[in-house]
Design a protein around this nucleic acid. Structure first.
Length: 931
RNA sequence: GGGCUCAUAGCUCAGACGGUUAGAGCGUACGCCUGAUAAGCGUAAGGUCGGUGGUUCGAUUCCACUUGAGCCCA
């Protein structure tokens, strides 16, 4: 007779092979069909809100692992919060303006900017951006991210633009917006500003010159040197002669040594390390070192400009290097970015003597009218004649060129709009302190960045963006910066979108009857647009304040650590400037995605991994598991090996769930549950372990430490379940009567565990959890369409029995010793399967007493056919295994006596006693008879 | 060059107010099972805690420097 038919073997349709790439899209479809996002919101309507505000990715290109990490983290948080009963709306967004989209749109259509009108071009950019949004949206959805995909936020939407303009208006009213000069890349032949992405580097031959600046004021530092001050010169080095008219300072490295080197009558100040370099260039020798000073000691001295009747200040800056030159850096804030920033610090003017065509203006005095190239020659000649030129050489170096006309470009100060940070810097730093930063060092990082940053240049000489809503009087040229006018423009944008700025004339954009202070009513529009960081930095208002389901401030922002300078900061600045508070209560940062060696992923290294490929091969749940597995506070690694490991872990969790499902095929939790009090110790122990797991996993979610719960869940599946509890209770599940109390008790435990487990993995393995959910038996009042709509598992305190835990810790220790003894017996061919074994345990003292207490569990827990407990170690034969960890214990393994029961595989001397069922043991006989 | 950050077994992570042989799981090797079966179980091997120096009776844990890596800036 085939007794296997009388066993309760696992049955389930839940497939062992996940086949996620095929299955996930169907689950997505179901979510969409039931509108799971709306349902989850509906369920928690009126409960405490939790607002995670999405940082908008840039709408260009396919998503990469960085997006993947970011979006899945957000999704795990939202799903967890939803299950905890929070009202957690998630409105994803996109950053849709900016240069890369301009460039991509042009490239895609194969046209040049001037081929089309501004409006046409802006519409093309918009179309391109929207196309990219749709593309990325599908990819994000495929990751299993749930949110309001039907209605995301876009920085190009009229409502958003209007809000942004209003923020600008509020800042303007508080006096934070001003116009100033700042150097930008400029092509004199195209007469246009260039962005960094529009620059190509090419070799160029230039004059490399060493110029003397005569000392005017030594601040008393050199008075003991016995040198005529008129003979002391700072020597600078430059390759852009034409920028000398704009020189306002000489910058030294604060910690470098500077020498006063005397050659004949003249004394030159240069960095000690570069003296040889200067001597070589100027063909000098035989110096006398009069003194050495640190750069910071010389700070504040004053020189005379080499050819203008003007001063040049000695300053210090960290950007000075000793790679080349003299260590004394010619500083022209109008012609260099570093020079500009250091100039801001020292309060220097931004002198700009060059016009848009690259010609010197009147500010350049005698050179006015010359092009900068002609100026190069004229200035050089003058320096030679006035004996201010110490040396000259020709050098070939890499120099920026315009990508369009291929001509060399210049750095030139132009008028730009700025947001003054000084006005609200203190408030910003106060606001930072009110925010919870994870990791904690984030607070120091952003604080020091805000403390040290310069003013925010918010204007861009571009087309695809939100216009700066400023007008200029046609008659007197004065700009009109007025909150009411700006709000008026905002309202027009709200109705018509920002294209209105380009479609309408100034008078139609202004409130009726607007007049300049000079009496004129004729105005022209500003042509610059805003920095895209101002766009996304306005999202806390543009999104949180415009949607009924959201509220300001956000509970959480979570982005990569590159956003301290980006979105975290731009959001903070616009928020503090207009609302005196941070727009977020908590900020979490994650690291960047790097390869298996910790190196950044790049095309050239060929070490990149495409999430879309991973989805095709493994499925999105494996990516989600990856996100949960890593400690995202530092950089997160990804490689083929890591993927392999993840899929193993996935498999283990899946198979554990599958085994639980397989043994619940005939279990109805509404009618078959066994009360805790009626369970045996082992079952109670399993429930105890589950309580620990719930506690640890919940804590980990609360602390946003997903890698902790990843390990907890995996360890629970492997150690507590697979290796121990599940292995042990197979016998009971399979061989007892289906409806016996013993089997129902085990099933009650399995069901309780599966129910909690599936909920706890749902935020991570969102697809798999829902698949499991579909197959598992559910109680009437917990029968949601999706696990994502279910409630979080609760800890049941009475299951947390410390004494039970100690006892079973002890059982496990003893089991460890027995398993070693069994393994030795296996190696010696005494047994194969552990059920072949009879185990004799010799013990004394506490150990013996304890074993005696749990005597009835021993066969079960060791999964052997027979255990004999014998008091007294001295009774153990020589060949018995001596406990390694537990000295009061020895184990002797032998082949079990009796016959192997055909049904339960336990060896028993009762086998053969029945004539009807000669191959069954007594226990199975009872069961079979009763069926 | 500057600011911030990271560095524990092949992998992902624990750990310690400084103090006995630094833990887990996976992977690997070997074995068992064939009633979780493209599964399951067992045993074992694996680390001079990135390097150097210092503080200390004692440091992987504290300090300094250094190497490699990442982000931002210059």
């Amino acid at each position: 007779m085939d007794y296997s038919k009388t066993l309760n073997l696992p049955q389930t349709e839940f497939a062992m092979r996940a086949n996620l790439p095929q299955k996930e899209p169907n689950i997505l479809k179901e979510w969409e069909d039931i509108d799971i996002y709306k349902k989850a919101l509906q369920k928690n309507k009126g409960k405490t809100p939790f607002i995670l505000h999405d940082g908008p990715p840039y709408a260009n290109g396919d998503i990469h692992l960085g997006h993947t990490l970011n979006k899945i983290l957000k999704d795990m948080i939202n799903k967890y919060k939803t299950m905890r009963g929070f009202y957690a709306p998630y409105v994803p967004g996109w950053d849709t303006h900016g240069l890369p989209i301009e460039l991509q749109a042009l490239k895609k259509l194969g046209i040049k900017v001037h081929d089309v009108s501004t409006i046409e071009f802006r519409n093309m950019c918009r179309d391109y951006a929207l196309e990219q949004v749709e593309r990325q949206k599908e990819q994000f959805k495929r990751l299993g991210v749930i949110g309001d995909w039907e209605n995301p936020y876009l920085t190009l939407s009229p409502e958003f633009e209007a809000k942004q303009i209003e923020i600008f208006g509020d800042m303007a009213q508080k006096g934070y917006i001003y116009k100033g000069l700042k150097p930008v890349y400029w092509c004199p032949s195209c007469e246009t500003a260039l962005a960094e992405a529009e620059i190509e580097y090419d070799d160029e031959t230039s004059n490399s010159i060493y110029v003397k600046f005569r000392l005017l004021d030594d601040k008393g530092l050199f008075k003991d040197l016995g040198v005529n001050l008129n003979n002391i010169y700072y020597v600078i080095w430059t390759t852009t002669t034409w920028t000398l008219p704009a020189n306002l300072a000489i910058c030294l490295g604060p910690d470098f040594d500077y020498v006063l080197a005397k050659f004949d009558e003249e004394v030159y100040i240069v960095a000690k390390e570069l003296l040889e370099n200067v001597k070589k260039a100027a063909k000098l020798e035989g110096e006398e070192i009069l003194a050495t000073f640190k750069g910071y000691e010389l700070d504040g001295q004053v020189c005379h400009h080499p050819f203008f009747d003007r001063e040049s200040l000695i300053i210090v800056g960290e950007h000075v290097t000793l790679d080349s030159g003299t260590g004394c850096v010619h500083t022209a804030p109008g012609h260099g970015e570093e020079d500009f920033y250091i100039g801001q610090k020292y309060g220097l003017d931004v002198l700009n003597p060059v016009d848009g065509k690259g010609r010197f203006t009147e500010l350049a005095g005698k050179y006015a009218g010359l092009t900068y190239k002609e100026g190069n020659k004229a200035i050089l000649q003058d320096l030679r004649e006035s004996n201010m030129l110490l040396a000259e050489e020709k050098i070939t170096h890499s120099y920026p060129h315009c990508w369009r006309c291929k001509n060399p470009i210049i750095f030139r100060a132009t008028e730009q709009w700025f947001a003054s940070i000084e006005g609200f810097r203190k408030a910003a730093i106060e606001a930072i302190k009110e925010v919870k930063w994870i990791p904690e060092w984030g607070e120091d990082r952003i604080e020091s960045m805000v403390a040290e940053r310069g003013d925010w240049c918010i204007s861009r000489q571009r087309t695809w963006g939100v216009p700066i809503p400023i007008f200029y009087c046609e008659d007197c040229g004065k700009e009109l910066v007025d909150k009411n006018i700006i709000y008026h423009v905002a309202e027009i944008f709200r109705q018509k979108g920002s294209n209105a700025w380009f479609e309408l004339e100034a008078k139609d954009l202004l409130p009726e009857g607007t007049k300049c202070g000079c009496g004129s009513d004729r105005f022209r529009k500003e042509t610059d647009i805003m920095d895209v960081w101002f766009d996304s930095g306005s999202s806390h208002v543009g999104v949180l304040e415009t949607r009924d389901e959201l509220s300001w401030p956000a509970d959480l922002y979570i982005e990569g650590n590159d956003q301290y300078r980006g979105w975290f900061q731009s959001s903070l600045l616009t928020s503090v400037a207009t609302r005196e508070k941070a727009p977020y209560k908590m900020v979490i940062t994650h690291g960047m995605v790097v390869d298996g060696e910790g190196r950044k992923m790049s095309k050239s290294l060929g070490n990149g991994i495409d999430p879309l490929d991973v989805i095709k091969e493994y499925g999105a749940d494996v990516l989600r598991l990856w996100v949960s597995s890593a400690d995202y506070k530092s950089d997160v690694r990804m490689s083929k090996d890591i993927l392999k490991q993840l899929s193993e872990v996935y498999r283990k969790i899946r198979n554990t769930a599958r085994f639980l499902l397989g043994n619940l095929y005939d279990f109805n939790p509404d009618t078959d549950m066994v009360a805790y009090e009626e369970m045996n110790e082992l079952d109670k122990w399993a429930l105890l372990k589950l309580q620990h797991l719930i506690k640890d996993v919940t804590d980990a979610y609360e602390n946003y430490e997903f890698h902790i719960l990843y390990h907890d869940i995996h360890n629970f599946c492997v150690v507590d379940m697979s290796n121990f509890y599940l292995d042990i209770i197979k016998d009971r599940l399979y061989t007892e009567r289906p409806d016996s109390k013993e089997r129902r008790a085990a099933q009650t435990v399995l069901w309780t565990i599966l129910d909690a487990l599936v909920k706890m993995i749902a935020p991570v393995l969102s697809f798999t959890a829902d698949e499991i959910w579909k197959y598992m038996p559910k109680t009437k009042n917990n029968n949601y369409e999706s696990v994502h709509l279910a409630d979080w598992p609760e800890i049941i305190e009475k299951y947390v029995d410390k004494e039970l835990e100690n006892r079973w810790d002890n059982v496990q220790r003893i089991r460890g010793e027995v398993l070693k003894a069994l393994e030795i017996a296996r190696v010696n061919k005494i047994i194969g399967h552990s059920l072949n074994a009879k185990v004799q345990i010799f013990a004394e003292g506490e150990t013996y007493n304890f074993l005696n207490e749990i005597r009835n569990y021993l066969e079960t827990v060791f999964i052997v056919s027979k255990v004999e407990l014998i008091e007294g170690l001295e009774n153990a034969p020589e060949n018995a295994y001596k406990g390694e960890e537990i000295k009061e214990l020895a184990v002797l393994v032998s082949q079990a006596e009796g016959e192997k029961c055909e049904r339960c595989w336990v060896y028993s001397e009762t086998v053969g006693k029945s004539e009807e069922h000669p191959t069954l043991c007594a226990r199975c006989l009872d069961v079979v008879k009763s069926l």
